[in-house]
Amino acid sequence: LYDNALLARFYAHLWRRTGSGLARRVAQETCAWMIAELRTPQGGLASALDADSDGTEGTFYVWTPAQLTEVLGAADGQFAAETFSVTTAGTFEHGSSVLQLRADPADAGRLARVRAALLAARQQRTPPARDDKVVAAWNGLAIAALAETGLLLDRTDFIAAATAAAELLASLHLSAGRLVRTSRDGVAGSSAGALDDYACVAEGFIALFGVTGEPRWVRIAGELLETALSRFGAGSGAFYDAADDSEQLIYRPADPADGPTPSGTFAVAGALLSLAALTGSARHRDAAIAALGLVPVLVGRYPRAAGWGLAVAEAALSGPAEIAVVGAPDDSRTAELHKAALLAAPPGAVLAVGDGSDSPIPLLEGRGLAGGQPAAYVCRDFACRAPVTEPELLRAALAS
């Protein structure tokens, strides 16, 4: 799950920055795959699928030219081999290939027909088993990816899936400000949440608020981050990965380096920075900046272990930008400004959306309609420019 969640969000933002059709397709199809293959009956997202089936790795997914021809016939088999880079030598093991669609062919109808036939044939194979554990941190990453991609690509089903996963975490994994790390079949596990659980869930909830405008998600994110500060802090801006009341170990883990997923330290720095931008809290911003203190050391020695930290540092250096969009939810002009805000947002920008009435979110306080029209405010440190009512003016304000 974490691989696909991180990739989906990355490709969605690559598309909005570059217009790459490949990036758009990968973001959309990855989100659709997570929902189709990993969503549990309770609304969460399962942690993984096995790599093997029938005792062999990749059996469910890989193809040979002969198998393509057997399913599709000679002409379409050749078309599929060329389109998906399936060779006689193979790109995986034992002459088999993983399908790769690096560019869309001119004949979209033929591609759709071929994909449908291959999918139907693949369904006759033994599928890999699924690990149904719902892991809080990984679901937090997926919530952010699904919510933002849903807004960018006008996929309300993605936003609905993000909301369902968030509801599961809030109702099952969270109690009195404390998280459990996993659940399965609607039953919470016994493992206490680690720092990355608190950080990634808070990050996901803040992103979900920026898409749905539901203040509840910011409130819960704030509670999670208060626990992170009070229970995981190690002094001088550092964090432990385990809470101070967790199982007592000989060595209390504290690893700031990013791995396949963001480290707890850098993930909590990002969530703290975003919360500070929504609330104006200097305390949370200071904690975020302090947590980034190890970035220069890691970048100099192990740059691959500081990617998330560098992204958060870039956001801090750019502000981050604070974007407030106000207007009636059912007004198409509000929706246009909302989407334009995320499309044009600079690194690490936070997004708040409301209807112009009183809001518990400080960034929305005092931000009303402009001349009776939906409006967007671009702010830094809560100092805002004059509101704009047109998407092109919003894009210009965010670019300057």
Rank of each mutant, 00 (worst) to 15 (best):
E223H: 06
F239M: 13
D107P: 04
P362I: 10
T87Q: 05
G280C: 06
Y240I: 04
L101Y: 09
L153K: 00
T30I: 09
V134G: 00
A399C: 08
L394R: 00
S332K: 06
H284G: 09
A335C: 02
A80L: 12
Q248I: 07
P329G: 04
R125L: 11
H13D: 12
F209C: 01
G327R: 05
Q78E: 15
A311P: 04
G21N: 11
L1K: 02
R219K: 11
V71K: 06
I250G: 11
A32Q: 12
E314C: 12
V218Y: 01
G189A: 11
L275Y: 10
A315L: 06
V98L: 14
W33M: 10
A8C: 08
V211Y: 00
R395G: 14
P105S: 05
S359C: 10
A36W: 04
G222Q: 06
V180T: 12
W63P: 01
A166Q: 00
L343I: 06
F84V: 03
E148D: 08
L6M: 08
P387D: 06
S400G: 15
R122F: 09
R115Y: 05
L342P: 05
V268N: 01
G193A: 07
A129V: 10
G368A: 15
V134M: 14
R184E: 14
D245F: 10
A129C: 02
I361K: 12
A306P: 00
A162E: 06
L111N: 05
A192R: 14
S183H: 08
T156L: 07
A36K: 09
G307Q: 15
D244Y: 02
F232M: 06
A120T: 13
A344F: 11
S400C: 01
L208N: 03
L292Q: 04
V325W: 00
R231W: 00
C200M: 12
A194N: 06
A165R: 00
V299G: 03
R385H: 15
N4L: 13
A276N: 05
T163W: 08
N139F: 11
V326K: 02
R367H: 15
V350G: 03
A121E: 15
P215K: 06
A305D: 09
R367S: 13
V211P: 00
L141T: 04
A269L: 08
Q373D: 14
E214T: 12
E214Q: 11
D157K: 06
G90R: 01
Y302L: 14
A397W: 09
Y2G: 10
R16K: 09
T182I: 12
R231P: 00
A207L: 02
G21K: 05
L275K: 02
S332Y: 01
L169K: 03
G233I: 03
F205T: 01
A271N: 01
A242Y: 04
A192V: 04
A81H: 08
D76F: 13
D381V: 11
A166N: 01
G140S: 07
R283A: 15
G204D: 02
L225F: 05
A254Y: 00
G259N: 15
G177E: 07
A242H: 07
R122N: 11
P41I: 08
A290K: 10
R252Q: 10
P262F: 08
D131A: 08
A75I: 07
S332F: 04
L49H: 15
W308H: 15
T56L: 12
